[in-house]
């Protein structure tokens, strides 16, 4: 098992170098019809909502619903009014800060506990470690939509209802299983021999973890960290249930519950809120695309 898993990333290398395979056999007109055209449609559909979000966020209100005098796909005289309104006349900056604090804290908490757990399960191989590994995987599959009701009761009993702590303590319920599972896979790819050398030199398990394994696992830690950050940034149902006061809300909940008023929809500021709320994760994603892809596929492949 160890050998096959360790060889998997290595065995993939030549395949990646040989990408395309026999695609050179196809002629250009055919390639346009079966590859480029469908791909263009996919990319258009997948990106259009973002374009629409961005263009709506800078449209003056007069153009927003006037499709006869202005083309809806473009904007004349873009305005920053919606963004100014959002940043200076609503609690939006506070929501951004809350989301940031909650996401960073819960990610940090989950990473620290997951590193120890993954090391114990994958490397110490204590009695029953395989069973615990399976239990962690099953924990990853428990969806928030069946946990939020009992968790709401618990949060209330602990007296942390309507505080950031409620979210910082509940987000790890999905982050810890995910990070542990991902890090287990990563630790598995680090050769045992390094650890054995350190053991022979008299290092304790603690020292091995800190000075041998962790420096080698930095890419894995980044993958788990940015993914956990994104998951907590995007979380909705817990934040909706456990937070009541406006100043403690996170961005997704705040935008939906405070910016949407029943009488008139202010699409400009709503879209600006959605756009700015997406930016932190998109920026993070653009810097770490490879880590991102590896954590996503790593989580499903093992």
């Amino acid at each position: 098992m160890t050998t096959t898993n360790e060889q998997l990333p290595l065995g993939r290398e030549p395949v990646v170098g040989d990408e395309g395979g026999m695609a050179y056999l196809e002629r250009l007109p055919r390639r346009i019809a079966v590859v480029y055209l469908p791909l263009a449609v996919f990319v258009f559909v997948l990106l259009f909502p973002f374009y629409w979000m961005a263009i709506t966020a800078v449209k003056p209100n007069a153009q927003l619903t006037d499709y006869t005098n202005y083309s809806p796909f473009w904007v004349v005289d873009p305005t920053l009014d919606h963004i100014r309104y959002l940043l200076f006349e609503t609690s939006y900056p506070g929501w951004l800060l809350n989301t940031m604090v909650v996401a960073v804290a819960s990610t940090f908490l989950s990473l620290v506990t997951s590193v120890f757990a993954a090391y114990a399960i994958e490397r110490l191989r204590f009695a029953g470690s395989r069973f615990v590994g399976l239990a962690i995987f099953l924990a990853y599959l428990v969806p928030p939509s069946i946990l939020f009701i009992p968790l709401a009761l618990m949060v209330f009993k602990f007296g942390i209802y309507d505080t950031k702590l409620a979210l910082i303590f509940t987000y790890p319920t999905f982050l810890v299983p995910f990070c542990t599972w991902l890090l287990m896979g990563y630790f598995r790819s680090i050769p045992f021999e390094l650890e054995e050398c350190a053991l022979i030199d008299g290092a304790s398990r603690w020292q091995i973890l800190l000075k041998v394994l962790l420096p080698l696992s930095v890419p894995g830690l980044i993958s788990a960290g940015i993914f956990a950050f994104t998951l907590s940034w995007n979380e909705f149902i817990y934040a909706l249930t456990f937070i009541a006061s406006s100043e403690n809300k996170t961005v997704p909940v705040g935008v939906l519950t405070e910016l949407v008023r029943s009488d008139v929809y202010e699409w400009g500021s709503l879209m600006a809120g959605a756009l700015i709320g997406s930016l932190p994760v998109v920026i993070l994603y653009s810097f770490f695309v490879e880590h991102y892809v590896s954590s996503m596929t790593g989580a499903v492949k093992e």
Binding site: F42, V43, L46, L47, P49, F50, W52, M53, T230, W233, N234, F236, V251, P252, V253, V255, L256, L270, M271, G273, A274, L275, G277, S278, V281, V282, Y285, S286, V289, Y292, V293, M296
Partner: peptide, 17 residues
Amino acid sequence: AIVLLPWVVPTVLSAIA
């Protein structure tokens, strides 16, 4: 990289779009 974008942004925010 760009294909994965819809999955990265918060569902609630893209749902508002």
